[in-house]
Design a protein around this nucleic acid. Structure first.
Lengths: 246, 246
DNA sequence: TCCTTTAATAGTCACTGTGACTATAAACAG
DNA sequence: CTGTTTATAGTCACAGTGACTATTAAAGGA
């Protein structure tokens, strides 16, 4: 910025802006992409579902605020929130997006594995946090439906050219589970052997856990276990099929 | 956002934030990638170079502010600014990025052709706007060096999987000029026939101008002219070479 | 025990896109 | 006319992928 004709040094020269963060946290559960939502306890939109988030404090970056709000508002365990891969999505700044005052919101996206605890009660406040499948997501407060749609599209395309799909998996997983992540997020069906070949020939995408295998729910040949590798980019990309099969 | 324990309805409950926009506007000129910079007339950083930008007004979105500031601060013609493809880069929110007060800045990126006028004087204010090559960019005010580096990397990767390179070209251009854009932005050398084949076989990347040709500065065979096509994405992408040749 | 089902794993084949390279065409300078 | 420069045309081999077939290792039922 630069104050050619700006307010100079007086912080109160303009009606102040509030700056908030909003989070679109995704997981894959039971063949459906889920998003973490909270139920609002206050006006406006009291009783509505919304993305978790909140105000950025005066001495805090947006990234720090996102992590703090996520820990406060949702029941996500500390170590999960601290290690989480948070990515800025974009900033939403339409003048009337909040009826109370001028609020500019920095939106973030995060991917987490299917957590055992279904996001318990929030930390003291009367907020209720829940995983809801995207298919049956209710109306959301503010412009959160737009943010959620943007975040979903970002995640879908990120799977194409990054190794982020493993973020949806537990520390050790089978290639069948990784395949299920892709099929769920893209809502498509992939060829199993070709998917295998692509993942295994991409250096650093996954690393075999020596000797380990897991029975896949009782039926079928036991699958080998893998861990996420050090690679982050997928060169060349793994493109999703065009036409809408499935 | 949502005010579980937030400031509720009192806009003055917190020390206010200012929200600004910063623009990284690029062009290709004389074999070098250039960025549009202004020289600051005010403290802090008076006399330093900075990215163009300024405060978001109370009833204005960040996108609108970016377009307005660009028109006000730089000598860019109206119709250029109005038609410009502006893309959000990301938002910078570190608490001390501005010594005066808490300022959160939404950064944008734009690509323009090499304009005949080298960005004349700003609109009345004593700001001086100039195109400077990235190689010899001076120290920048605030965290603008970081923003500029992020924007440059965004542009470099955007050329891989979008058709945006034509935004650097005049309305009608030769494939040699388009090639020069890629070679300049990526700082590499590409194989001419292969580049041709890629561009011409990608539907909608460019459209031939029937019968038109241009003598390429006197020497060599005249080149056919093309216009930007309707396509925006490049599937499959045109990947830059890995090792640093040239 | 044998046979069927299920899912993982192995391998084959053709096609597409690309990197590297050679050849021809059309302008200008001397 | 000859050499230089740049645009354009075409060739060849190889990597990556889509579509497909085959084999292996487990569970469950007859």
């Amino acid at each position: 910025m630069n104050g050619a004709a700006g307010p100079g040094y007086d912080p109160y020269a303009f009606e102040p802006f509030a700056v908030t963060v909003d989070l679109a946290v995704f997981t894959v559960r039971g063949g459906a992409l889920h998003v973490l939502l909270i139920r609002r306890g206050q006006e406006p939109y009291a009783g509505s579902w919304a993305l978790p988030g909140g105000f950025v404090l005066p001495r805090e970056s947006a990234e720090a605020a996102a992590r703090r709000e996520l820990a406060e508002e949702t029941g996500l365990p500390e170590h999960i929130v601290a290690a989480l891969h948070l990515e800025q999505l974009r900033t939403y700044s339409e003048p009337d997006r909040d009826p109370r005052m001028r609020v500019v919101s920095v939106a973030f996206t995060a991917l987490v594995p299917d957590l055992p605890e279904p996001a318990a009660e929030g930390g003291g406040d009367a907020v209720q946090a829940r995983w809801l499948p995207l298919g049956e997501a209710p109306d959301l407060a503010f412009d959160h439906a737009v943010i959620l749609a943007d975040a979903r599209e970002r995640v879908r395309s990120k799977l194409e050219y990054t190794c982020l799909a493993t973020a949806f998996c537990p520390p050790e997983f089978t290639l069948g589970e990784l395949l299920a992540v892709y099929e769920t997020v893209w809502d498509t069906v992939l060829d199993r052997p070709n998917f295998r070949r692509k993942v295994l020939t991409t250096p650093g995408f996954v690393e075999a856990v020596p000797g380990a295998a897991r029975l896949t729910g009782g039926r079928g040949k036991p699958a080998a276990l893998y861990r996420a590798g050090p690679a982050t980019a997928l060169h060349p990309p793994l493109l999703r099929p065009e036409g809408p099969p499935r």
